[in-house]
Amino acid sequence: MKRSISLLAVLAGVGLGSWPGPLFAWTCIRANPANPSSRCIHWPEGKVTVKSFLGAPSQGPLLNGTRTWDENTLLAANEWNAQGASVKITVEIGGTFHNPCGRQGAGHACDNTGPPGDNPILFANDFCGRDFGDIIQLTNNCYRPDTGAMVNAPVFISSKVRWNAYDGRIRFDTSTGVPEPVYDIRRVILHELGHVLGLAHPDEANPPQAVLAIMNSRVSNLDRLQTDDVAGLLAIYPPATQGPLPTPSQGCAIEPAMTLRPWLAALALVVGMTRVRRSLVRALSKRQACSRAFASGRNGTLRCWEQTKCQITEVAGERAGSTVSSNQGAS
């Protein structure tokens, strides 16, 4: 019996251990890094065109059945586009090539990024004369720190490592006797397009956190977008019919309470859980107040939402009502 209980404890521990951490742990590059609540860098018009210059492999079809590297750019872009965000990635295969390498000036929005709006994805031996070192791919984001508006973001993929396209676990080539990784280009482009959209690495956030995400700094056995990636995308580019979502850095920890259903409050009332009832009533009143304040400022930006939330958080132990009134007036 004791052993069974211990086994259950172990299994519970394993379950908890595999818990990926906070649900909304995504991170982005803030327009002003010194201000963690400043806007994420983003495409202001909600659209970005990337030009895929990867071509086709010489060895025939890839392991996932595609015939060209460029098809994998399309697959990766489609996966981001399918999430319902208010941004759309358009992929052009080939087209006019502008060399992204060069000094800022005519034809280069930033150093080594090419003309504004030009976002090539290309194989390269180096990054504009700089050795890749141990890097196998990178995105050079060019943006305006004052507004967070992205200008362009070329993606460089090292031609010095082995590539293919496949789903599932990372594969290794053992033909030489020394296992050598064969990288899946589709998931790597999926990751890089996340950078193009403004997302950063959640596993490098401060304070440290563990989360399952294609946007983690390492390519892993994950080969599709995860909940956290999508949450990040939708927060930066909220669907047109929906207001901005909370971001983890805003510390608006009352969010779970806001998702409680009214029937839960009723249940709590029935069973006479006085303390639970008190907290639920408080949460629901915050929810209603937030909804009103937010609805009236729907045409505003995240700032309106943050302001409302944070002010409510500040007075959570006191009288939220009076603060909400002033918010409504402000919005």
């Binding site: 590059i29 800022q104 929005a109 930033c110 150093d111 080594n112 990024t113 890097i135 791919q137 990178l138 995105t139 050079n140 984001n141 060019c142 943006y143 305006r144 720190p145 004052d146 200008v151 950078h195 950063a200 690495h201 700094s217």
Partner: peptide, 9 residues
């Protein structure tokens, strides 16, 4: 000149 280039990786 008011623009920033950054390799996010």
């Amino acid at each position: 000149n008011g623009f920033r280039s950054q390799v996010l990786d």
